[in-house]
Amino acid sequence: MGEVELVDMLHKAEVSADLEKLFGCELHTDTPGGNAWVDPGSATRSICGCEFKNIRFRVFQNAGEVNLRARLVLQSGETLNSLPLVDREWRRFLSDFIHRPSESGVSPAPEGFLNRSIWAKLMRAPYRFARIGLARGKQMEGKCWLMLDSLFPQPNAGWL
């Protein structure tokens, strides 16, 4: 199945245009600009698709470890901040970018690369679709954090 067909199919599954209907319950945040969470007992589902109108990436690096986060604007104009992007293809793409040999010896910063060149490709794409999932709540914490499970279009090596 090609990506277009896959996204078509995902549109027929659980989708929402706004935050409230994503998981059928209220979303909470602890800090402005931070990721959102839901009460484990109140969510009516654990994954939901949504179209997005804009996206920005943030790349956190420390000691060889890379964390990719994203901000999304939904159809409703509401935003989701600091979503951990756990999509395997996107993580592999970022890793390939960071580790590819550079002719000049100086690699461009990954965040700038994602927010310029890759962002432009996403904005020109005929569809922009994300699947947001809920992480399993940690014992005692009582919070299920949101994650960006899949981001379409998927990146490809030609974008590097």
Partner: peptide
């Protein structure tokens, strides 16, 4: 974990 650490950094940034 590393994600939780990033959340702490974002919390400090916001504050």
């Amino acid at each position: 974990d590393s994600m939780g650490w990033v959340d702490v950094l974002i919390g400090v940034e916001s504050a």
